[in-house]
Write a protein that binds this DNA or RNA. Structure first.
Ligand code: MN
Ligand code: MN
Ligand code: ZN
Ligand code: ZN
Lengths: 140, 140
DNA sequence: TCGTAAATGCAAGTGATTATCATTTAGAAA
DNA sequence: TTTCTAAATGATAATCACTTGCATTTACGA
């Protein structure tokens, strides 16, 4: 969907930093940190401070344009375009690539947990770590 | 197993801070942060600086006496006694209680991932968030 | 008992993220 | 189109968990 239309829907003003940032997520479907985004502005010759970038990311998460991705091995917060469906991630420990997987193997298991532990599950997080196809070949 | 024996096996010297910290994990099987541990020393009237605590936790993780638990909603590092088997956690979003579960519902799924995404999984992390039994009752 | 590497304690440093606040601006109203 | 104002930005300082450097102490083997 169009960047301007998406921003209008949220009620957020259409500013230069917001349009660029949302464009990065919408167009290229990347996993980005605040610092990655700062570099893009830097290289475009129009630096934007990290404080602004962090504020915008928070707002985008709140408006469900973007979601935070928790990667245990990363020491910084990562964000990706929000997806319609609950998903999981495959993280390559060699090249840091992240693969988004829109299927979930533990949906049924959640009701088991309610029976065995009396625990009512609202959501879960599941990450797989290993080697992507390219890095496996490089190792072979 | 005895605290002293465990420390001897690792080759680490048996010092006061190490014995107390290892005891917390072994005896009570708790989930603890560096700050939680600092409070214990404080209350015992024998304060130990956080730098020492962090150093010891790192060593215990390296020696497999303790393992780090990644909880997305916690802003600090948490540690628990190392267990023999791969496990998962149920985290109560109300009272912060953590339940350790020694069963895994995604073991088979990992080979599927290799087929569908060419991704070779080495390990994974899985956390369930929700309400524990006590907090469900309190809400009802 | 001694010698020494290991461990500790204190203080200062890091680095990602957040908060403060003066200035600017998008966008609605006149 | 001009004016107005809440929202947004940018510069700077603050936080806070964690780490590091270094001088002093200590466990423990010789
Ligand atoms: Mn899932
Ligand atoms: Mn598992
Ligand atoms: Zn890779
Ligand atoms: Zn609870």
């Amino acid at each position: 969907m169009n960047i301007d239309v998406l921003l209008e829907k949220t009620g957020l003003k259409k500013t230069y930093p917001r349009k660029i940032i949302l464009g990065l997520f919408e167009d290229r479907d990347q996993f980005l940190s605040a610092d990655d985004i700062a570099k893009v502005f830097q290289e475009a010759g129009h630096p934007v401070p990290l404080s602004t970038i962090y504020r915008i990311l928070d707002q985008f998460v709140e408006k469900h344009l973007v979601s935070e991705v928790h990667i245990e091995t990363a020491q910084v917060k990562l964000y990706e375009r929000a997806h319609a469906h609950h998903a999981h991630h495959l993280i390559c420990t060699e090249c840091e690539k992240i693969i988004h997987v829109e299927s979930c193997p533990v949906h049924d298991y959640e009701s088991d947990l309610e029976d065995t532990h009396g625990f009512k599950v609202t959501h879960h997080t599941l990450n797989f770590y290993g080697l992507c196809e390219a890095c496996q070949k490089a190792h072979a």
